[in-house]
């Protein structure tokens, strides 16, 4: 089996690992680094449970090789809080009860932060369109949309 060395920054910490070339980014995060907040839902780049930020942009980590993230800055759900305080978007999801089972939530929060980076004040239609790549099978999305609007407002202030 052909192995490669990859080095990247994950949640602010430099990591260097030797992995098989076919290792997916999500496998590196979950299985090598123990960051199991990033979930594998469909494993076919549809559901968005595995979304993480790579160099500030949301990607499906089940459809990216760890090798392709070599040298990148990766941010997962575990890297969002600071000093024990939830990220404003996480706090908004909690406040608005934007989750039921919670499986899709890490990917939703990552997508929401990516959206706000592109559009600081997204309207409801924009939020709903930007959630095209994230599936929730519990909530019906209404509270997720409310939470993202509130989280965006909190991130502006």
């Amino acid at each position: 089996m052909s192995s490669i060395s990859v080095a990247m920054t994950v949640n602010g910490t430099r990591v260097s690992e030797s992995v098989p070339a076919r290792t997916l980014l999500v496998q590196l995060l979950r299985e090598q680094l123990g960051l199991t907040g990033t979930h594998v839902g469909c494993d076919t780049s549809q559901c968005g449970a595995c979304n993480v930020l790579v160099n500030g942009r949301a990607v499906k980590s089940c459809t990216m090789l760890a090798a392709q993230a070599d040298g990148a800055e990766v941010l997962t759900i575990e890297g969002l809080e600071s000093d024990g305080q939830l990220h404003p978007m996480q706090a908004a999801f909690k406040e608005h009860h934007a989750l039921q089972c919670g499986f899709c939530t890490p990917g939703m929060v990552i997508t929401a932060i990516d959206l706000v980076a592109n559009d600081a004040n997204p309207g409801e239609a924009t939020i709903r369109k930007y959630l095209e790549g994230n599936f929730c099978r519990c909530t019906g999305y209404h509270n997720i949309v409310k939470a993202i609007a509130a989280g965006a407002e909190a991130m502006r202030s």
Partner: peptide, 9 residues
């Protein structure tokens, strides 16, 4: 094309 995450890659 696709969804936001696919368009990023």
């Amino acid at each position: 094309i696709g969804d936001p995450q696919v368009r990023n890659r």
